[in-house]
Design a protein around this nucleic acid. Sequence first.
DNA 1: AATGACATGATGGTCAGACCACCAAAGTCA
DNA 2: TGACTTTGGTGGTCTGACCATCATGTCATT
Lengths: 243, 243
Amino acid sequence: MEIKPIKSRRTKEIILDQIKQFMLEGQLNSGDKLPTEMELSNMFQVSRTSLREALSALSLTGILEIRHGEGIFIKQSPSNAIIEPLSFIMLMEKNQLQNILEVRKALEMEAVDLASQRRNDEDIEAIGKIVEKMEKDLPEAKNSIQHDLAFHLAIAKASKNPLLDRLMNTVQDIVGQTLHVTRALWMSGNSGTTQRLFEEHKFIYISIVNQESQLARSLMYSHLVKVEQERKKYEENQKKLYV
Amino acid sequence: MEIKPIKSRRTKEIILDQIKQFMLEGQLNSGDKLPTEMELSNMFQVSRTSLREALSALSLTGILEIRHGEGIFIKQSPSNAIIEPLSFIMLMEKNQLQNILEVRKALEMEAVDLASQRRNDEDIEAIGKIVEKMEKDLPEAKNSIQHDLAFHLAIAKASKNPLLDRLMNTVQDIVGQTLHVTRALWMSGNSGTTQRLFEEHKFIYISIVNQESQLARSLMYSHLVKVEQERKKYEENQKKLYV
DNA sequence: AATGACATGATGGTCAGACCACCAAAGTCA
DNA sequence: TGACTTTGGTGGTCTGACCATCATGTCATT
Protein backbone atom coordinates (compact mmCIF):
# COMPACT_ATOMS: atom_id res chain seq x y z
CA MET A 1 0.00 0.00 0.00
CA GLU A 2 1.33 3.30 -1.01
CA ILE A 3 1.66 5.95 1.61
CA LYS A 4 0.67 9.25 0.18
CA PRO A 5 2.42 12.32 1.41
CA ILE A 6 -0.25 14.02 3.39
CA LYS A 7 -1.27 17.10 1.54
CA SER A 8 0.35 19.92 3.32
CA ARG A 9 1.55 22.76 1.19
CA ARG A 10 -0.27 25.99 1.62
CA THR A 11 -2.52 27.05 -1.16
CA LYS A 12 -0.52 30.20 -1.40
CA GLU A 13 2.66 28.34 -2.28
CA ILE A 14 0.89 26.30 -4.89
CA ILE A 15 -0.38 29.49 -6.43
CA LEU A 16 3.12 30.90 -6.41
CA ASP A 17 4.50 27.90 -8.22
CA GLN A 18 1.69 27.95 -10.72
CA ILE A 19 2.27 31.60 -11.44
CA LYS A 20 5.97 30.96 -11.85
CA GLN A 21 5.23 28.13 -14.20
CA PHE A 22 2.75 30.29 -16.00
CA MET A 23 5.33 32.99 -16.41
CA LEU A 24 7.97 30.59 -17.62
CA GLU A 25 5.94 28.42 -19.95
CA GLY A 26 3.80 31.23 -21.24
CA GLN A 27 6.89 32.86 -22.62
CA LEU A 28 5.87 36.01 -20.91
CA ASN A 29 8.21 38.88 -21.31
CA SER A 30 8.94 41.76 -19.07
CA GLY A 31 6.15 44.26 -19.06
CA ASP A 32 3.51 41.82 -20.18
CA LYS A 33 0.11 42.00 -18.59
CA LEU A 34 -1.27 39.10 -16.64
CA PRO A 35 -4.93 38.11 -16.58
CA THR A 36 -7.10 39.93 -14.10
CA GLU A 37 -7.45 38.78 -10.52
CA MET A 38 -10.85 37.33 -11.26
CA GLU A 39 -9.58 35.32 -14.20
CA LEU A 40 -6.54 34.10 -12.33
CA SER A 41 -8.59 33.03 -9.34
CA ASN A 42 -10.85 31.10 -11.69
CA MET A 43 -7.89 29.54 -13.47
CA PHE A 44 -6.31 28.37 -10.25
CA GLN A 45 -9.63 27.56 -8.63
CA VAL A 46 -8.94 29.57 -5.54
CA SER A 47 -10.63 32.53 -3.99
CA ARG A 48 -9.60 35.99 -4.94
CA THR A 49 -8.41 36.52 -1.38
CA SER A 50 -5.88 33.71 -1.52
CA LEU A 51 -4.78 34.71 -4.95
CA ARG A 52 -4.24 38.26 -3.85
CA GLU A 53 -2.02 37.15 -1.00
CA ALA A 54 0.22 35.40 -3.47
CA LEU A 55 0.25 38.32 -5.87
CA SER A 56 0.89 40.61 -2.97
CA ALA A 57 4.02 38.70 -2.07
CA LEU A 58 5.28 38.70 -5.63
CA SER A 59 4.62 42.39 -5.78
CA LEU A 60 6.56 43.12 -2.62
CA THR A 61 9.53 41.17 -3.84
CA GLY A 62 9.43 43.15 -7.04
CA ILE A 63 8.59 40.36 -9.46
CA LEU A 64 5.24 41.82 -10.35
CA GLU A 65 3.93 45.31 -10.51
CA ILE A 66 0.28 45.78 -9.64
CA ARG A 67 -1.25 48.97 -10.92
CA HIS A 68 -4.58 49.96 -9.43
CA GLY A 69 -7.21 50.25 -12.09
CA GLU A 70 -4.95 48.87 -14.79
CA GLY A 71 -3.80 45.38 -14.10
CA ILE A 72 -0.95 43.16 -13.13
CA PHE A 73 2.32 43.38 -14.99
CA ILE A 74 5.60 41.58 -14.98
CA LYS A 75 8.10 44.08 -13.83
CA GLN A 76 10.53 45.20 -16.47
CA SER A 77 13.53 45.31 -14.26
CA PRO A 78 13.13 43.07 -11.26
CA SER A 79 16.29 44.58 -9.87
CA ASN A 80 14.47 45.91 -6.89
CA ALA A 81 13.35 42.43 -6.08
CA ILE A 82 15.93 41.93 -3.44
CA ILE A 83 15.97 45.41 -2.01
CA GLU A 84 13.07 44.99 0.32
CA PRO A 85 14.25 41.73 1.85
CA LEU A 86 17.79 42.97 2.00
CA SER A 87 16.84 46.17 3.75
CA PHE A 88 14.90 44.11 6.21
CA ILE A 89 17.96 42.08 6.91
CA MET A 90 19.75 45.29 7.56
CA LEU A 91 17.19 46.31 10.08
CA MET A 92 17.23 43.00 11.82
CA GLU A 93 20.92 42.48 12.00
CA LYS A 94 22.88 45.41 13.16
CA ASN A 95 26.43 46.10 12.18
CA GLN A 96 25.83 44.69 8.75
CA LEU A 97 27.01 47.85 7.08
CA GLN A 98 30.55 46.61 6.98
CA ASN A 99 29.39 43.40 5.33
CA ILE A 100 27.44 45.23 2.70
CA LEU A 101 30.34 47.49 1.93
CA GLU A 102 32.52 44.47 1.40
CA VAL A 103 30.02 43.01 -1.02
CA ARG A 104 29.88 46.33 -2.78
CA LYS A 105 33.63 46.36 -3.10
CA ALA A 106 33.55 42.93 -4.68
CA LEU A 107 30.95 43.98 -7.20
CA GLU A 108 32.52 47.32 -7.99
CA MET A 109 35.88 45.85 -8.77
CA GLU A 110 34.50 43.30 -11.15
CA ALA A 111 32.29 45.93 -12.73
CA VAL A 112 35.09 48.35 -13.40
CA ASP A 113 37.17 45.54 -14.82
CA LEU A 114 34.45 44.50 -17.22
CA ALA A 115 33.59 48.09 -17.99
CA SER A 116 37.16 48.72 -19.10
CA GLN A 117 36.92 45.85 -21.53
CA ARG A 118 33.45 46.41 -22.85
CA ARG A 119 32.81 50.14 -22.67
CA ASN A 120 31.64 51.73 -25.88
CA ASP A 121 31.65 55.35 -26.98
CA GLU A 122 28.33 55.92 -25.35
CA ASP A 123 29.60 54.72 -21.98
CA ILE A 124 32.71 56.83 -22.25
CA GLU A 125 30.65 59.89 -22.99
CA ALA A 126 28.26 59.21 -20.12
CA ILE A 127 30.98 58.66 -17.56
CA GLY A 128 32.98 61.55 -18.94
CA LYS A 129 30.08 63.93 -18.49
CA ILE A 130 29.71 62.89 -14.89
CA VAL A 131 33.39 63.50 -14.26
CA GLU A 132 33.06 66.93 -15.87
CA LYS A 133 30.17 67.79 -13.60
CA MET A 134 32.15 66.61 -10.62
CA GLU A 135 34.96 68.94 -11.52
CA LYS A 136 32.63 71.83 -12.14
CA ASP A 137 30.82 71.43 -8.84
CA LEU A 138 34.00 70.75 -6.96
CA PRO A 139 34.55 74.23 -5.51
CA GLU A 140 31.11 74.37 -3.96
CA ALA A 141 31.23 70.68 -3.12
CA LYS A 142 27.61 70.41 -4.14
CA ASN A 143 25.80 67.39 -5.55
CA SER A 144 28.83 65.36 -4.69
CA ILE A 145 26.72 62.46 -3.51
CA GLN A 146 24.61 62.39 -6.63
CA HIS A 147 27.66 62.57 -8.83
CA ASP A 148 29.40 59.85 -6.91
CA LEU A 149 26.37 57.61 -7.18
CA ALA A 150 25.95 58.33 -10.87
CA PHE A 151 29.59 57.60 -11.52
CA HIS A 152 29.48 54.16 -10.01
CA LEU A 153 26.17 53.27 -11.59
CA ALA A 154 27.42 54.37 -14.99
CA ILE A 155 30.31 52.00 -14.57
CA ALA A 156 27.93 49.24 -13.61
CA LYS A 157 26.00 49.89 -16.78
CA ALA A 158 29.13 49.90 -18.89
CA SER A 159 30.01 46.46 -17.58
CA LYS A 160 27.30 45.11 -19.90
CA ASN A 161 26.35 42.61 -17.26
CA PRO A 162 22.73 43.32 -16.32
CA LEU A 163 22.85 41.08 -13.30
CA LEU A 164 25.90 42.81 -11.93
CA ASP A 165 24.31 46.13 -12.74
CA ARG A 166 21.23 45.27 -10.77
CA LEU A 167 23.04 43.92 -7.80
CA MET A 168 25.09 47.06 -7.65
CA ASN A 169 22.03 49.22 -7.88
CA THR A 170 20.50 47.30 -5.03
CA VAL A 171 23.54 47.52 -2.86
CA GLN A 172 23.95 51.21 -3.60
CA ASP A 173 20.35 51.83 -2.64
CA ILE A 174 20.81 50.15 0.68
CA VAL A 175 24.11 51.80 1.39
CA GLY A 176 22.56 55.08 0.36
CA GLN A 177 19.62 54.68 2.69
CA THR A 178 21.88 53.84 5.55
CA LEU A 179 24.55 56.39 4.97
CA HIS A 180 22.56 59.20 3.49
CA VAL A 181 22.94 61.78 6.18
CA THR A 182 26.30 60.62 7.35
CA ARG A 183 27.88 60.80 3.96
CA ALA A 184 26.37 64.16 3.19
CA LEU A 185 27.83 65.70 6.28
CA TRP A 186 31.13 64.03 5.88
CA MET A 187 31.68 64.78 2.24
CA SER A 188 30.43 68.34 2.22
CA GLY A 189 32.37 69.26 5.30
CA ASN A 190 35.67 68.11 3.99
CA SER A 191 36.82 69.81 0.85
CA GLY A 192 40.25 68.18 0.95
CA THR A 193 38.65 64.79 0.86
CA THR A 194 36.33 65.86 -1.91
CA GLN A 195 39.26 66.99 -3.99
CA ARG A 196 41.04 63.70 -3.55
CA LEU A 197 37.90 61.73 -4.31
CA PHE A 198 37.49 63.62 -7.54
CA GLU A 199 41.01 62.79 -8.62
CA GLU A 200 40.50 59.14 -7.87
CA HIS A 201 37.35 59.13 -9.91
CA LYS A 202 39.13 60.83 -12.74
CA PHE A 203 41.94 58.30 -12.79
CA ILE A 204 39.46 55.46 -12.82
CA TYR A 205 37.69 57.11 -15.71
CA ILE A 206 40.92 57.46 -17.66
CA SER A 207 41.83 53.84 -17.14
CA ILE A 208 38.41 52.81 -18.38
CA VAL A 209 38.87 54.92 -21.49
CA ASN A 210 42.28 53.34 -22.08
CA GLN A 211 40.86 49.89 -21.46
CA GLU A 212 43.42 49.19 -18.77
CA SER A 213 41.21 46.84 -16.86
CA GLN A 214 43.73 45.68 -14.31
CA LEU A 215 44.71 49.24 -13.51
CA ALA A 216 41.08 50.23 -13.22
CA ARG A 217 40.52 47.34 -10.88
CA SER A 218 43.30 48.28 -8.52
CA LEU A 219 42.40 51.97 -8.65
CA MET A 220 38.88 51.10 -7.68
CA TYR A 221 40.20 48.91 -4.92
CA SER A 222 42.27 51.60 -3.30
CA HIS A 223 39.50 54.12 -3.86
CA LEU A 224 36.97 52.04 -1.99
CA VAL A 225 39.38 51.14 0.75
CA LYS A 226 40.11 54.82 1.32
CA VAL A 227 36.45 55.72 1.31
CA GLU A 228 35.90 52.97 3.81
CA GLN A 229 38.63 54.24 6.09
CA GLU A 230 37.27 57.77 5.93
CA ARG A 231 33.86 56.50 6.87
CA LYS A 232 35.18 54.60 9.85
CA LYS A 233 37.11 57.62 11.02
CA TYR A 234 34.05 59.80 10.68
CA GLU A 235 31.86 57.37 12.57
CA GLU A 236 34.30 57.13 15.41
CA ASN A 237 34.30 60.88 15.72
CA GLN A 238 30.54 60.89 15.77
CA LYS A 239 30.50 58.36 18.54
CA LYS A 240 32.86 60.47 20.58
CA LEU A 241 30.60 63.45 20.09
CA TYR A 242 27.31 61.88 20.94
CA VAL A 243 27.95 58.97 23.21
CA MET B 1 -4.71 77.11 3.12
CA GLU B 2 -2.61 74.09 3.46
CA ILE B 3 -2.92 71.42 0.86
CA LYS B 4 -2.79 68.08 2.46
CA PRO B 5 -1.03 65.34 0.60
CA ILE B 6 -3.92 63.21 -0.48
CA LYS B 7 -3.59 59.91 1.24
CA SER B 8 -2.16 57.69 -1.37
CA ARG B 9 0.10 54.98 -0.14
CA ARG B 10 -1.32 51.54 -0.17
CA THR B 11 -2.50 50.26 3.15
CA LYS B 12 -0.22 47.31 2.68
CA GLU B 13 2.86 49.51 2.55
CA ILE B 14 1.79 51.39 5.63
CA ILE B 15 1.41 48.11 7.43
CA LEU B 16 4.85 47.03 6.28
CA ASP B 17 6.40 50.20 7.61
CA GLN B 18 4.53 49.91 10.85
CA ILE B 19 5.67 46.36 11.32
CA LYS B 20 9.21 47.41 10.59
CA GLN B 21 8.92 50.17 13.11
CA PHE B 22 7.35 47.76 15.53
CA MET B 23 10.22 45.40 15.08
CA LEU B 24 12.76 48.13 15.56
CA GLU B 25 11.25 49.98 18.50
CA GLY B 26 9.98 46.90 20.19
CA GLN B 27 13.46 45.53 20.13
CA LEU B 28 12.15 42.27 18.81
CA ASN B 29 14.70 39.61 18.30
CA SER B 30 14.84 36.73 15.93
CA GLY B 31 12.40 34.03 16.85
CA ASP B 32 10.10 36.28 18.81
CA LYS B 33 6.38 35.87 18.46
CA LEU B 34 4.26 38.65 17.11
CA PRO B 35 0.72 39.42 18.28
CA THR B 36 -2.06 37.48 16.63
CA GLU B 37 -3.60 38.57 13.37
CA MET B 38 -6.66 39.87 15.19
CA GLU B 39 -4.60 41.93 17.58
CA LEU B 40 -2.40 43.28 14.83
CA SER B 41 -5.35 44.26 12.67
CA ASN B 42 -6.82 46.09 15.64
CA MET B 43 -3.53 47.79 16.39
CA PHE B 44 -3.10 49.00 12.84
CA GLN B 45 -6.79 49.68 12.37
CA VAL B 46 -7.04 47.68 9.20
CA SER B 47 -9.02 44.65 8.27
CA ARG B 48 -7.57 41.24 8.78
CA THR B 49 -7.57 40.77 5.01
CA SER B 50 -5.25 43.67 4.36
CA LEU B 51 -3.08 42.73 7.25
CA ARG B 52 -2.78 39.20 6.01
CA GLU B 53 -1.65 40.38 2.60
CA ALA B 54 1.19 42.23 4.22
CA LEU B 55 2.11 39.34 6.48
CA SER B 56 1.86 37.00 3.57
CA ALA B 57 4.34 38.98 1.58
CA LEU B 58 6.75 39.17 4.48
CA SER B 59 6.38 35.46 4.91
CA LEU B 60 7.25 34.67 1.32
CA THR B 61 10.28 36.88 1.37
CA GLY B 62 11.49 35.03 4.42
CA ILE B 63 11.23 37.81 6.96
CA LEU B 64 8.48 36.18 8.97
CA GLU B 65 7.49 32.64 9.58
CA ILE B 66 3.80 31.96 9.96
CA ARG B 67 2.89 28.73 11.66
CA HIS B 68 -0.69 27.62 11.37
CA GLY B 69 -2.31 27.24 14.76
CA GLU B 70 0.68 28.70 16.53
CA GLY B 71 1.38 32.23 15.55
CA ILE B 72 3.64 34.58 13.68
CA PHE B 73 7.35 34.58 14.34
CA ILE B 74 10.33 36.56 13.23
CA LYS B 75 12.54 34.26 11.27
CA GLN B 76 15.86 33.43 12.80
CA SER B 77 18.04 33.88 9.77
CA PRO B 78 16.42 36.17 7.24
CA SER B 79 19.43 35.87 4.98
CA ASN B 80 17.53 33.38 2.90
CA ALA B 81 15.18 36.18 2.09
CA ILE B 82 17.09 37.15 -0.99
CA ILE B 83 17.34 33.72 -2.51
CA GLU B 84 13.82 33.46 -3.76
CA PRO B 85 13.78 36.77 -5.60
CA LEU B 86 17.25 36.21 -6.95
CA SER B 87 16.45 32.82 -8.35
CA PHE B 88 13.37 34.30 -9.90
CA ILE B 89 15.47 36.85 -11.70
CA MET B 90 17.66 34.09 -12.98
CA LEU B 91 14.72 32.13 -14.24
CA MET B 92 13.23 35.07 -16.00
CA GLU B 93 16.28 36.00 -17.95
CA LYS B 94 17.83 33.31 -20.01
CA ASN B 95 21.39 33.14 -21.19
CA GLN B 96 22.53 34.70 -18.01
CA LEU B 97 25.12 32.06 -17.26
CA GLN B 98 28.04 34.20 -18.31
CA ASN B 99 26.71 37.05 -16.21
CA ILE B 100 26.24 34.83 -13.21
CA LEU B 101 29.75 33.50 -13.50
CA GLU B 102 31.11 37.02 -13.56
CA VAL B 103 29.21 37.88 -10.43
CA ARG B 104 30.51 34.72 -8.85
CA LYS B 105 34.04 35.73 -9.74
CA ALA B 106 33.52 39.07 -8.05
CA LEU B 107 32.22 37.49 -4.89
CA GLU B 108 34.80 34.72 -4.79
CA MET B 109 37.71 37.09 -5.03
CA GLU B 110 36.51 39.27 -2.22
CA ALA B 111 35.68 36.21 -0.15
CA VAL B 112 39.10 34.66 -0.51
CA ASP B 113 40.68 37.98 0.33
CA LEU B 114 38.66 38.34 3.50
CA ALA B 115 39.09 34.67 4.34
CA SER B 116 42.84 35.09 4.24
CA GLN B 117 42.62 37.88 6.75
CA ARG B 118 40.01 36.45 9.06
CA ARG B 119 40.39 32.70 8.93
CA ASN B 120 40.75 30.96 12.26
CA ASP B 121 42.09 27.53 13.11
CA GLU B 122 38.71 26.00 12.56
CA ASP B 123 38.50 27.37 9.04
CA ILE B 124 42.00 26.21 8.21
CA GLU B 125 41.18 22.73 9.39
CA ALA B 126 37.93 22.61 7.45
CA ILE B 127 39.46 23.78 4.20
CA GLY B 128 42.52 21.61 4.74
CA LYS B 129 40.38 18.51 5.08
CA ILE B 130 38.65 19.27 1.84
CA VAL B 131 41.98 19.67 0.07
CA GLU B 132 43.10 16.34 1.51
CA LYS B 133 40.02 14.63 0.21
CA MET B 134 40.59 16.20 -3.16
CA GLU B 135 44.06 14.79 -3.29
CA LYS B 136 42.91 11.39 -2.14
CA ASP B 137 40.14 11.15 -4.71
CA LEU B 138 42.28 12.62 -7.43
CA PRO B 139 43.30 9.36 -9.17
CA GLU B 140 39.74 8.23 -9.62
CA ALA B 141 38.56 11.74 -10.25
CA LYS B 142 35.52 11.06 -8.15
CA ASN B 143 33.48 13.49 -6.07
CA SER B 144 35.39 16.28 -7.71
CA ILE B 145 32.30 18.42 -8.04
CA GLN B 146 31.31 18.01 -4.42
CA HIS B 147 34.82 18.79 -3.28
CA ASP B 148 35.06 21.80 -5.50
CA LEU B 149 31.77 23.14 -4.19
CA ALA B 150 32.71 22.45 -0.58
CA PHE B 151 36.02 24.19 -1.07
CA HIS B 152 34.51 27.42 -2.28
CA LEU B 153 31.76 27.43 0.28
CA ALA B 154 34.24 26.84 3.09
CA ILE B 155 36.11 29.90 1.91
CA ALA B 156 32.88 31.85 1.87
CA LYS B 157 32.28 30.84 5.44
CA ALA B 158 35.79 31.77 6.47
CA SER B 159 35.24 35.26 5.12
CA LYS B 160 33.14 35.89 8.24
CA ASN B 161 30.77 37.95 6.18
CA PRO B 162 27.37 36.26 6.41
CA LEU B 163 25.93 38.33 3.61
CA LEU B 164 28.74 37.45 1.27
CA ASP B 165 28.45 33.84 2.36
CA ARG B 166 24.75 33.83 1.67
CA LEU B 167 25.13 35.43 -1.74
CA MET B 168 27.79 32.96 -2.75
CA ASN B 169 25.66 30.05 -1.69
CA THR B 170 22.83 31.40 -3.77
CA VAL B 171 24.97 31.94 -6.80
CA GLN B 172 26.56 28.52 -6.43
CA ASP B 173 23.14 26.94 -6.23
CA ILE B 174 22.07 28.57 -9.42
CA VAL B 175 25.28 27.83 -11.23
CA GLY B 176 25.08 24.27 -9.98
CA GLN B 177 21.58 23.81 -11.29
CA THR B 178 22.57 25.13 -14.65
CA LEU B 179 25.89 23.40 -15.05
CA HIS B 180 25.29 20.20 -13.20
CA VAL B 181 25.50 17.73 -16.01
CA THR B 182 27.90 19.69 -18.12
CA ARG B 183 30.46 20.06 -15.41
CA ALA B 184 30.26 16.45 -14.39
CA LEU B 185 31.05 15.26 -17.86
CA TRP B 186 33.70 17.80 -18.45
CA MET B 187 35.59 17.35 -15.21
CA SER B 188 35.47 13.60 -15.01
CA GLY B 189 36.52 13.18 -18.58
CA ASN B 190 39.65 15.20 -18.26
CA SER B 191 42.11 14.02 -15.67
CA GLY B 192 44.77 16.49 -16.73
CA THR B 193 42.42 19.31 -16.00
CA THR B 194 41.45 17.75 -12.70
CA GLN B 195 45.08 17.54 -11.69
CA ARG B 196 45.67 21.17 -12.51
CA LEU B 197 42.51 22.24 -10.70
CA PHE B 198 43.65 20.44 -7.60
CA GLU B 199 46.94 22.24 -7.62
CA GLU B 200 45.27 25.57 -7.98
CA HIS B 201 43.02 24.80 -5.06
CA LYS B 202 45.99 23.76 -3.01
CA PHE B 203 47.87 26.96 -3.71
CA ILE B 204 44.84 29.00 -2.77
CA TYR B 205 44.59 27.05 0.46
CA ILE B 206 48.21 27.69 1.28
CA SER B 207 47.90 31.40 0.68
CA ILE B 208 44.90 31.49 2.98
CA VAL B 209 46.85 29.71 5.68
CA ASN B 210 49.70 32.18 5.25
CA GLN B 211 47.28 35.09 5.28
CA GLU B 212 48.57 36.33 1.97
CA SER B 213 45.33 37.91 0.96
CA GLN B 214 46.53 39.63 -2.18
CA LEU B 215 48.14 36.45 -3.43
CA ALA B 216 45.01 34.49 -2.63
CA ARG B 217 42.99 37.02 -4.53
CA SER B 218 45.06 36.77 -7.68
CA LEU B 219 45.29 32.99 -7.48
CA MET B 220 41.52 32.82 -7.25
CA TYR B 221 41.28 35.18 -10.17
CA SER B 222 43.40 33.09 -12.48
CA HIS B 223 41.75 29.94 -11.22
CA LEU B 224 38.29 31.17 -12.11
CA VAL B 225 39.40 32.58 -15.42
CA LYS B 226 40.88 29.23 -16.36
CA VAL B 227 37.79 27.35 -15.26
CA GLU B 228 35.76 29.74 -17.31
CA GLN B 229 37.88 29.20 -20.40
CA GLU B 230 37.67 25.42 -20.01
CA ARG B 231 33.94 25.68 -19.77
CA LYS B 232 33.68 27.73 -22.90
CA LYS B 233 35.91 25.34 -24.79
CA TYR B 234 33.83 22.41 -23.63
CA GLU B 235 30.58 24.05 -24.60
CA GLU B 236 31.85 24.85 -28.06
CA ASN B 237 32.76 21.24 -28.56
CA GLN B 238 29.34 20.19 -27.42
CA LYS B 239 27.75 22.52 -29.89
CA LYS B 240 29.80 21.07 -32.70
CA LEU B 241 28.68 17.61 -31.69
CA TYR B 242 25.02 18.21 -31.35
CA VAL B 243 24.07 21.11 -33.52
C1' DA C 1 1.27 7.27 38.63
C1' DA C 2 2.07 6.85 33.67
C1' DT C 3 0.16 6.82 29.31
C1' DG C 4 -2.58 7.58 25.50
C1' DA C 5 -7.11 9.26 23.48
C1' DC C 6 -9.95 12.99 23.32
C1' DA C 7 -12.04 17.70 23.91
C1' DT C 8 -11.20 22.49 23.84
C1' DG C 9 -9.47 27.01 22.69
C1' DA C 10 -6.37 29.79 20.18
C1' DT C 11 -4.71 30.91 15.88
C1' DG C 12 -3.91 30.95 11.12
C1' DG C 13 -6.19 29.61 6.21
C1' DT C 14 -9.83 30.10 2.94
C1' DC C 15 -13.85 31.75 1.13
C1' DA C 16 -17.88 34.67 -0.85
C1' DG C 17 -19.82 38.91 -1.55
C1' DA C 18 -20.09 43.63 -1.21
C1' DC C 19 -18.43 48.14 -1.95
C1' DC C 20 -14.61 51.68 -2.70
C1' DA C 21 -10.79 53.84 -5.53
C1' DC C 22 -8.32 54.42 -9.57
C1' DC C 23 -7.41 54.53 -14.51
C1' DA C 24 -8.15 54.71 -19.39
C1' DA C 25 -10.93 55.31 -23.08
C1' DA C 26 -15.13 56.37 -25.12
C1' DG C 27 -18.57 59.71 -25.31
C1' DT C 28 -20.32 64.58 -24.82
C1' DC C 29 -20.62 69.31 -25.12
C1' DA C 30 -18.95 74.11 -25.73
C1' DT D 1 -11.17 70.84 -32.00
C1' DG D 2 -10.42 70.52 -27.28
C1' DA D 3 -11.67 70.02 -22.61
C1' DC D 4 -14.85 67.78 -19.59
C1' DT D 5 -17.84 63.85 -18.16
C1' DT D 6 -19.29 59.31 -18.07
C1' DT D 7 -18.60 54.63 -17.90
C1' DG D 8 -16.54 50.01 -17.68
C1' DG D 9 -12.81 47.43 -16.10
C1' DT D 10 -9.66 46.55 -12.59
C1' DG D 11 -7.34 46.43 -8.32
C1' DG D 12 -8.03 47.71 -2.93
C1' DT D 13 -10.45 47.05 1.31
C1' DC D 14 -13.74 45.34 4.37
C1' DT D 15 -16.95 42.09 6.84
C1' DG D 16 -18.30 37.86 8.57
C1' DA D 17 -18.36 33.27 8.29
C1' DC D 18 -16.36 28.78 8.45
C1' DC D 19 -12.31 25.40 7.99
C1' DA D 20 -7.60 23.50 9.44
C1' DT D 21 -3.98 23.03 12.50
C1' DC D 22 -1.57 23.06 16.77
C1' DA D 23 -0.85 23.22 21.91
C1' DT D 24 -2.75 22.22 26.05
C1' DG D 25 -5.62 20.42 29.41
C1' DT D 26 -8.71 16.50 30.73
C1' DC D 27 -9.83 12.02 31.68
C1' DA D 28 -10.20 7.03 31.21
C1' DT D 29 -7.31 3.03 30.90
C1' DT D 30 -3.59 0.46 32.35
